[in-house]
Design a protein around this nucleic acid. Structure first.
Length: 156
DNA sequence: GCCAACGTTGGC
DNA sequence: GCCAACGTTGGC
């Protein structure tokens, strides 16, 4: 059984449509520089399901579903001095940062805004909604997943 | 642009 | 190991 996650991206940087344009092979989720988020990515398995969340945008919220297609491997941007994500403390033999590959699965029928999520008592314990949460990669429980699917107009 | 909340760094 | 200073995230 797959696990469920939520991953944030600023649409100005990398939007859900950008992911859709990457096709079947998906895209590496590079640039995560937070240990807790990194650890969550390292625990992901192929086939895990992901809510794609748009952050730092006029109406933040969940826009669609993605899927893990490659399990954690070293984030190449940490070795690239030209990259904004370069980390001089990392080395090829001892990488500090990891990424997974994810691919587009489908849009939600309805965008589910953060404001709407906050109004749901069923989601009161969601990691995303916890006070001061800044995690760009967070776990979602199966119950939370189903609830948000309903809000998103997906009835499998 | 503001700022609360949080993670990280580094001096001690 | 403590904790002040600093940087970042991200909603508003």
């Amino acid at each position: 059984m797959p696990a469920y996650w939520l991953m944030k991206s600023e649409p100005d940087e990398f939007s859900f449509d950008d992911l859709a344009a990457c096709g079947e092979q998906g895209e590496g989720w590079s640039g995560v520089r937070n240990y807790q988020a990194r650890n969550f990515m390292r625990s992901m398995a192929t086939g895990d399901q992901v809510f794609f969340y748009h952050s730092s945008t006029p109406i933040p919220g969940v826009i669609g579903i993605a899927e893990v297609v490659r399990e954690a491997y070293p984030d190449p941007t940490q070795f690239d001095p030209q990259s904004p994500y370069y980390d001089e403390r990392s080395s090829e033999t001892s990488p500090r940062w990891w990424q997974v590959d994810v691919r587009f699965v489908r849009h939600l029928a309805n965008f589910v805004a953060l404001k709407q999520l906050r109004g749901q008592s069923a989601l009161s314990e969601m990691v995303l909604l916890k006070k001061g949460n800044r995690l760009s990669v967070a776990p979602v429980t199966p119950q939370e997943w189903r609830h948000i699917l309903e809000l998103g107009g997906i009835h499998d």
